Computed example of a mutant assay.
Amino acid sequence: MSLTIKNGEIFGIVGYSGAGKSTLLRCLNLLERPTSGQVIIDGVDLTTLNKKELRQARLKIGMIFQHFHLVSSKTVFENVAFALKAAKKSKDEIEKRVNELLEMVGLSDKRDAYPSQLSGGQKQRVGIARALANEPTVLLCDEATSALDPSTTKSILALLKKINRELGITIVLITHEMEVVKDICDRIAVMQDGKVIELGTVYDIFTNPKEELTKSFINSVLQFDLPDHLLKKRTGTIVKIQFKGEMAEEAVVSDMLQTFKVKGNILHGKIEYIQDMPLGIFVMELTGEPDEIQRAIDYISLRTNGLEVIASAA
């Protein structure tokens, strides 16, 4: 595997269990030492460092875990302070920094609470504050939202995005949830059997996936399959149309219906916004004379980013 993650981006690593996501992430801070090759962060090859140098380098690589890993016998303040004590910071430095971090993650009022008194989302916020304690340049997130409900996941992703944008920290996030990738990542790598099989911006991957595994991940978010019983009732030609970018906001379908002697019945459709760019997908039934339907299909194909005939009465 050869992979370059850009400074300041949110980079997602996606794959099913056993694909190698967690192993790759743990290689980035040498919790797992690769059998060969280099791990270069901020220009330093971590594999060449001695134990003391590696401990120092790891201070700049924060890590957030799926199951939080908080010390149950310590307060929120003490859990966050732990990383600063390990870095041999003074008492005054620790007090100031922990208070800043708790305010950043919205937990100033939970300073003296214990993990057992916190919700899952609050525990993860403590984990994020702890990971940021030593002002890292890289933040590694190991399935950071998998143990959370959808609403809490949204709030944690919003917090991570805020941290990335305001502090400029590079975030590497592994997940099997494409919804997470769609909401937060700039680029993604899709992994299978220890290899990266597809790599690109989130928008490009969502609009033009090449690999079957990638397509199956995207289908879990953009699900447009119609039930068989619904397809059997249709008497016309059913097409799936994809609109990218500005095209998603234009009246192509409406123009087509006015230009040709066909009727259109939209069966399914939505516009998603990925990296603030629209992606529209519509499934519709076209009825009319076969020649007119074909002309309408050709018209749409030329003016959109993809048309697939799902079923045809002919």
Rank of each mutant, 00 (worst) to 15 (best):
G121D: 12
E250L: 15
P34M: 06
I218L: 07
D92K: 14
Q275Y: 09
Y203I: 13
L159K: 01
E95Y: 06
I41G: 02
L167N: 07
S90K: 11
A83K: 11
E250T: 15
K52E: 14
I5Q: 01
R55S: 12
E246A: 13
V196S: 06
S301R: 13
L84W: 08
K233D: 13
A131E: 05
I41N: 04
I271M: 09
I64Y: 00
A313T: 14
M191V: 04
K85E: 15
I128S: 05
D193L: 12
L102Q: 01
E53W: 00
F77H: 11
A147Y: 07
L84A: 11
Y299W: 11
R303Y: 10
R26L: 00
G245R: 06
K74M: 14
F65K: 03
A144Q: 03
V80R: 00
I281S: 12
V202I: 13
L107Q: 09
Q122M: 13
T237F: 02
P115N: 12
R111K: 15
E9M: 00
P209A: 09
E166H: 05
L102G: 02
L46G: 01
A144P: 13
S73P: 06
I61F: 01
V44E: 12
N29Y: 06
A314K: 15
L54Y: 05
L107K: 06
I169C: 03
P278D: 06
Q294F: 09
I10W: 01
N208K: 14
K51D: 13
G8E: 05
G280H: 08
P115R: 11
T170L: 00
G236S: 10
P209E: 12
D109Y: 11
T145Y: 07
T47Q: 02
G15V: 06
T201H: 10
L30S: 04
V239D: 06
D92Q: 15
V181K: 05
I5A: 01
I266S: 11
M1K: 09
Y299C: 04
R97Q: 12
V196Q: 05
H67E: 14
T23M: 10
R125L: 08
A296L: 07
R26F: 00
R55C: 09
E9S: 08
S151L: 12
L84R: 08
H229C: 08
M247G: 00
I271Y: 09
A83M: 12
E32D: 13
N7R: 13
